[in-house]
């Protein structure tokens, strides 16, 4: 009995020694890397992207001041097609900046009469802003404005039925913008829809 208890104690000690250090040693660099670079935190890469976006939009402002809308479009386009953090699943900040940038692209293209390109920008932007935010609301608002401009252009060309359809699309898009913005306010106030 005595011998058995001593043997048992030694066995526990041996198992402990075998499991403890071995378990740690078998999990070397991956855990360390994971702890050093926890995913989803605000890091240098995110800030670099935000800084790039900031500079790109300020440059686009300067081109706009010079009435060079193509130059402004080129600046913003370079931002939305460039490298971005998170690959296929960018962090929320990146998605929202991209959504806002696509809205600007669409607005600029709409002013130049490139309505179909603007429509594509808006579709792409909405893909980055699925949540109820001002960013999503603005995309619908820009769509309404672009469709309104398209309607005016079509009417000028004598295409009255197409102009009417564009006007209807504008009305729908602007209503969607109003709905989203209302929901943003409700969410902020904590009120029920």
């Amino acid at each position: 009995m005595r011998r058995r208890s001593v043997l048992l104690a030694w066995a526990v000690l041996a198992v402990g020694l075998a499991l403890g250090p071995g378990g740690c040693a078998e999990r070397p660099s991956q855990d360390v890397q994971a702890e050093r670079c926890p995913e989803g935190v605000v890091d240098e890469v995110l800030l670099a992207f935000l800084s790039k976006a900031r500079a790109a939009h300020h440059r686009a402002d300067l081109f706009e001041l010079d009435k060079d809308l193509d130059g402004a479009i080129e600046e913003v386009e370079r931002l939305v097609t460039g490298v971005r953090p998170g690959g296929g699943t960018p962090p929320p900040e990146v998605r929202e900046v991209l959504a806002d940038s696509f809205a600007r692209l669409a607005e600029l293209r709409g002013r130049l009469g490139r309505f179909d390109d603007a429509e594509r920008d808006l579709d792409e932007g909405l893909g980055f802003a699925p949540e109820v935010t001002h960013f999503r609301g603005r995309l619908f608002e820009v769509r309404g404005v672009v469709e309104k401009e398209r309607a005016a252009a079509l009417e000028k060309d004598g295409k009255l039925s197409e102009s009417k359809l564009a006007r209807e699309r504008a009305i729908r898009a602007l209503q969607q913008a109003i709905d989203v913005q209302e929901q943003v306010i409700r969410d902020a106030l904590g009120a029920q829809p």
Binding site: H57, F135, E141, V145, A177, A188
Partner: peptide, 12 residues
């Protein structure tokens, strides 16, 4: 939340 973004400008 009560101030939606303008349709034109303000991005910078």
């Amino acid at each position: 939340p009560a101030q939606p973004f303008p349709a034109r400008g303000g991005e910078s």
